[in-house]
Every structure is written in C-alpha cells, then in structure tokens.
Amino acid sequence: MIPSIDLVLLSLVVVLAIAAITVRDLLSAIMLLSAYSFLMAMVWVEMHSVDVAFTEAAVGAGASTAFLIAALSRTVRWEKK
C-alpha cells in the first residue's frame, strides 16, 4: 500500500459514511452509500486485493443499491424527525 493515497481514500470513506447516515432524504442516503462502496473498492484495489474489490464494485455498488431503491419505491422516501 501507498500510505498517502490510502489516507486520502480512507478519510473520504469516513466522510461519506457520516454523510450517508446524516442526510434526511433516504434516496440521497442510498446514493451516498453507493459512492461509499465504490470508494471502498478503490481502497481494496490499492491494498492489492483485486478480487474483493471487483466483488464489492459489482455487489455493493450495483446490486445492493438496486435492492435498496426497489424497497424505497414501495415505502416512503423521507425520514421523519
């Protein structure tokens, strides 16, 4: 691993995780979770585990997002306070 790239990516991951659980619009939260998964896949490529990165990009950012949006279309979009 290269520490500088690693640190930048990981701090972005932390920021996105905080953003995903903070926003009130659930659709935005799901999109932020998708971006978080892609960044996590980049972290793993940078740590030389290409297979895990491939799976995470396909499953975490593709299939999970589709499932969450499908569930959201059957329920409500806004989180109540």
């Binding site: 290409v50 297979d51 990165a53 491939f54 799976t55 396909a58 499953v59 593709g62 299939a63 589709a66």
Partner: peptide, 25 residues
C-alpha cells in the same frame, strides 16, 4: 467475459452473474 476468466484472474461466476442480473434490472 468475467465468468469465463474466473479461473485465471479476478472475477468468477458470482461476480459475472451479478453483472448479468444487473443488465436485466
């Protein structure tokens, strides 16, 4: 491509299947 290259590189049946299903979605 991902399914057929699963034996010699990153990828495999599960990942390729997820991508194929995502195309239907």
């Amino acid at each position: 491509y991902v399914i057929m290259h699963g034996s010699s590189g990153p990828g495999g049946g599960f990942q390729g299947g997820v991508i194929f299903g995502a195309s239907f979605v």
